[in-house]
Write a protein that binds this DNA or RNA. Structure first.
Lengths: 330, 330
DNA sequence: CCCTCCACGGAAAGCGATTTCCAAGTATGC
DNA sequence: GCATACTTGGAAATCGCTTTCCGTGGAGGG
């Protein structure tokens, strides 16, 4: 394994000079020395040992990204945005998936702390359990106490820079748009009650209906993924004319369930989701939803974390209602 | 920043003992010392400095994964499989996206070499340019010369452990199945000519048609993504009854293009893809394809790399033809 | 022509862990 | 009861790089 010392010896210069040439420094190195070092490094096939560099510098160029599930287009889009931003700043990205287990989320923050990652990004909904949230916050605080930066895409509950999607307001606007189409009897495929994102969207939707004096929607709890939507669709009451799934992958699952049962969308029932994941544009029928700029949210989170303001910044991202063929007026 | 030395001092033991307790070792430590160290570590909130550990041990627990595009469900599925396997072995994963630029692929291998990653996984098609391939191979060889392990999901061109999808054979079997339905006039949305995966699939398809004495299919080149399929579909000749897109995302794009033009699938034209990406199951019409076990391929690649046999292993993965509603007999 | 200052090369002290080598204490066998 | 063999704790060298501090030679100013 060729080290900087090998390069320095081959070039006939000191370690310090070789380091300054190859790994950047504020100090200048004369042209003659510089080319000698570069030539030696190329000949020997030298590659910096980042572990040693990180140790010596006391700072790494790793950005950690924690998501629930990379296969979910929602997280894939956020991760993609984050990776582009990280890349543009010369950082590399370490990704961990929690598989929706908060314990794994905490463990991964600890791992990233051990890596002395430059920044940690946590994407995805918080859970309603205050004990779990407190433990994650404690782990993040410890990390930040050691000089780490952190940002979150989701609820502003961790005391760090946050990109906060307007879940409540977006769902409320969607409810309004759907009510304007003449719907009165709604169902909400609400996901798990303890997931705050799911709960906020459900609550926003319900609040808007109540404000208009419309009857309470049917609430169906379930999982937050495609299969959860598929299963929940089975219990929707027959008099319901419009179904709101609290995220797009659930809506896609519900659409599949309706199709299997011969229920036509939108003729028999209207369906809407939330997020506007990229894969949606090829779906039949085209799904109505609330558009969130997912990739931008990912890159913004990276920028916030890297900027590292003293007081945590919270940026709200409002979703835009997009009506497509999955809904119709009644 | 609390170090092992702080912990040792607080516990009143030596650095060596603290290290043995906290970071694993073959050596035993007495129960009394052990609990004292653990207590001190917990009180101080100690987190191992992985950079220092990596430097001292001469080995890291990072696995690098290089993919073209995380938003593409094909790569997301492979990455997910790889991450699960890595996780099971106690490794963390660093992901890089190349955005289909071979230069970035090479650069990322160099970065992972600098990280002294335990293993590097390269997923995605090689390109036909032998110079580029040689440069990537050289970079990988340098990495492996320093003790790194590598594996590849794709063509066996890099001299490392490889999980090789049966592109040619799978496409040939698909062509056979489609011909059995009575189709004789085909088009192939062939992707970019220089992408070997795309070329192999096209060639396999053509070979099977030729073997049956069927006329040459129309070949339409284009990009290897959804928009490429969408654009390519526009130039399909009107007499064609069956279109093969060399991957699923292209097929999905083609389906969208046909829908926009009022061409019905499968009534007017049959369409098939390749890969069987997970999002396909909710597509309308359900897309016929060749199923590849993507997640398993990802985890297998990790296992191969970690096993580190002396001679590179090559595991072929054969795809299974799956006919769904996007094709019909003629 | 002398003095100051700048530019640039090198020696050496860390960074925070692991691990080898010693030494001392404790079991075990006869 | 003594020699032998394990255990187990600690001192110190080491991993590869960065960076401070020092020293030297040459340019520029008066």
């Amino acid at each position: 394994m060729v080290t900087l010392e090998d390069v320095a010896r081959q070039a006939g210069v000191s370690l310090a000079t070789a380091s300054r040439v190859l790994n950047g420094s504020t100090r200048q190195v004369g042209a003659a020395m510089r080319t000698r070092v570069e030539k030696a490094a190329a000949e020997l096939g030298y590659r910096t040992n980042v572990a040693a560099q990180t140790l010596a510098r006391g700072a790494s160029n790793v950005i950690g990204l924690v998501v629930h599930d990379l296969v979910d287009p929602y997280f894939a889009a956020i991760a993609d945005g984050a990776m582009r931003a990280a890349d543009a700043e010369g950082h590399v990205v370490m990704v961990g998936t929690t598989r929706r287990d908060p314990e794994r989320e905490i463990a991964y923050v600890a791992t990233l702390n051990a890596q002395r990652a430059k920044a940690v990004l946590i994407a995805g909904s918080r859970v309603a359990d205050p004990v779990v949230t407190a433990r994650l916050k404690a782990e993040l605080d410890r990390y930040r106490a050691q000089g780490g930066r952190a940002a979150c895409v989701g609820q502003d509950l961790l005391g760090v820079d946050t990109v906060a999607p307007g879940n409540h307001a977006g769902a409320a606007r969607l409810a309004g748009a759907l009510a304007d189409l003449g719907h009165t009897r709604f169902a909400v495929l609400a996901g798990p009650p303890h997931l705050i994102t799911a709960a906020d969207r459900r609550a926003g939707f319900q609040a808007a209906l109540a404000e208009r004096g419309l009857p309470e929607p049917q609430i169906v709890y379930g999982r937050f993924d495609r299969d959860g939507g598929h299963a929940a669709a089975a219990s929707v009451r027959p008099d319901v004319t419009c179904v709101f799934a609290v995220n797009d992958v659930m809506a896609v699952g519900a659409l599949a369930a309706f199709r299997e049962r011969g229920v036509r969308v939108p003729e028999d029932v209207s369906v809407a989701g939330f997020d506007d994941i990229p894969t949606l544009r090829d779906h039949v029928p085209a799904l109505s939803t609330v558009r969130l700029p997912l990739a931008a949210m990912g890159s913004l989170a990276v920028e916030l974390a890297l900027a590292g303001e003293d007081v945590p910044q919270v940026v709200a991202m409002e979703g835009e209602v997009v009506l497509r063929e999955s809904v119709r007026a009644i």
